[in-house]
């Protein structure tokens, strides 16, 4: 339980949400989205922490000595990898949409890219 990790992850999520809610430039909104993802990834990885544990990899010496080794939890690491990949794909798609919007509307200001409303 590393307290600093949790505080930082909550701060990142809050910053990301603030960026999405207030920034007018579409690219900054996409950046905010990315920051939310990283905050959550940090939280997931921190969950798996076991004090005094090593990386969750079995080595041959462990098998030879039948020593019980304490590992950190490998499942959150797998979850985080998946989440990082998903975050990368979402950012790529979002940025390509921003490029197409720029070509069409000649602006990336969110207040001007809102033809559908009401």
């Amino acid at each position: 339980m590393i307290i600093v990790n949790y505080i930082v992850s909550v701060a990142l999520i809050a910053l990301g949400l603030f960026a999405v809610c207030t920034k007018k430039n579409l690219i900054k909104i996409v950046l905010g989205l990315g920051i939310i993802d990283y905050g959550i990834n940090l939280m997931i990885v921190s969950i798996g922490y076991v004090p005094g544990g090593t990386a969750p990899v079995y080595t041959l010496s462990d098998f030879a000595n039948f020593v019980s080794v304490s590992f950190v939890d490998p499942v959150p690491q797998a979850l985080t990898l998946t989440s990082i990949v998903i975050g990368a794909c979402v950012d790529a798609l979002a940025l390509s949409l921003v490029i197409m919007i720029y070509r069409k509307y000649k602006t990336v200001n969110a207040d001007e890219v809102r033809r559908i409303r009401g």
């Binding site: 909104i29 979402v90 979002a94 033809r115």
Partner: peptide, 23 residues
């Protein structure tokens, strides 16, 4: 394009909330 962008941003926020809950 505009609708797709808004859907992506808001949908991703939703998925992030789900992920936080799962964590």
């Amino acid at each position: 394009l505009e609708a797709g962008f808004k859907y992506l941003i808001l949908g991703s926020i939703g998925s992030s909330l789900v992920l936080a809950g799962i964590a």
